[in-house]
Design a protein around this nucleic acid. Structure first.
Lengths: 228, 228
DNA sequence: CAGGTCATTATGTATAGACATAATAACGCA
DNA sequence: TGCGTTATTATGTCTATACATAATGACCTG
């Protein structure tokens, strides 16, 4: 046995085979290091990875135990829409439907932690894949946090892509839901009013300042996929 | 500066402040170790974490560069439904609507990589929060991979919870989508036919063998939340 | 100049040893 | 018995050093 990946695999095997049943305390790092013939740091690396996936719980002094009700963790990759479309082998394009400074409505203000009525840049965009509607985007953008105060021409670069390249935000939160399309949304996406749409809402922050709130709608047939 | 977290934070700051602009190659681990006054292993740990979040790209010999179009990664935590309900402060209960051996239909067979018509255990369950419908679950379970061939009474423990405790599966994939509720689904969830439902479909495997395919429906108002 | 070979280089990983930290368990005192 | 203090212990992290590995780029050859 050599390498932390081999140690990790053996640990996973023992958990799956119930050699170490749920709730049981497993041997300490030192003991495992001796058993596997590796250094403690190697065992540590392996156990840390498994713990991050949720299958082990580690606490100082208490030791490492197999999780009783492991909370499974999946990693979602959130690509830029252009990349998502091009990965399907379709041509990406976009149409800016609206672009203006506007007092932020209550719902968006709450999510961004701003006062209602503050003036933000409002952007409404339709993303197309091979000329057909792919997603409808509504976005409020906080101009206060923009570098240099310069804004690009959003008809040539999508807001998302520009932000990702120009404002390296680090935190945010996302929520997904299913809703019925409003008449305006249905019209933009070329579907019927009331059709189910997949909604992604995202708020991103740069440090303390909110950057943007996006509401992204995907029409019927859209699937968000990930691996466990 | 001491500790890999401090190094990581400083690296993030430099990326955000564009000291290291997108696409730029950053100094090597050795140089950073000298600059920060830590060992190379500490820098390595910090850079590895940042790279995992998608903001840096590392390649042997080529060095480490700031990602031009970082693919943002979010971690989804997938709890057991009972925990999800109880975390909202509501009482969890469930009703088993159907439980029988049944030839697997084509759609489910394809996802599980099985031949159509193989006999699987079919389970239909309604999950309730405070007595009100919370989610509707349809599941095919492969009896071949069950430990000892013993099955529990699914009226007392949910299939998900039992599986998590008794079959430590390690891989699978998940897809989310928005669909219109069928008449049967609407009836079970107490909503109207055609109302948008949030659909989670999950396939899990234990090594090579498929364990289960679940289709989980949440009615209007459900939000799946995560952090960036 | 094309194509294959090899040296170079930055990251990837392993190791032994050390100290830090948090949490438990043992202890002692009122 | 109950409670605060202390010792113990397993994990968490850091260091210095070494070797492995992959990928680049230079070199050599036909």
């Amino acid at each position: 046995m050599a390498g932390w990946e081999a140690v990790r695999d053996e640990v996973l095997r023992r958990i799956r085979a119930r050699v170490w049943p749920p709730g049981a305390v497993i041997p300490g790092e030192e003991a495992l290091a001796v058993e596997f013939g590796v250094a403690r740091a190697t065992v540590n690396r392996a156990l840390r990875e498994v713990a991050e996936s949720g299958l082990l719980e580690r606490r100082r002094k208490a030791g490492t135990r197999v999780a009783v009700l492991p909370v499974r963790k999946a990693t979602l990759e959130i690509p830029i829409i252009r990349q998502e479309v091009e990965a399907r082998g379709e041509r990406y394009s976009q149409r800016v439907l609206a672009e203006r400074m506007d007092p932020v409505p209550l719902a968006a203000a709450l999510r961004m932690g701003l006062a209602e009525g503050v003036d933000l840049l409002f952007l409404e965009t339709l993303h197309l894949a091979g000329g057909r509607p792919f997603a409808h985007e509504v976005r409020w953008l906080n101009p206060a946090v923009l570098p240099g105060g310069e804004l690009p021409d959003f008809r040539h670069i999508s807001a998302n892509e520009w932000l990702v390249q120009n404002v390296a935000y680090t935190i945010g939160d996302i929520a997904f839901s299913a809703e019925a399309a409003s008449p305006e949304e249905a019209l933009a996406l070329g579907i019927r009013t009331g059709d189910p749409v997949f909604v992604t809402e995202r708020v991103t922050w740069s440090g303390e300042a909110p950057i943007t709130f996006v509401r992204l709608l995907h029409g019927p047939g859209y699937r968000l996929r990930t691996m466990l």
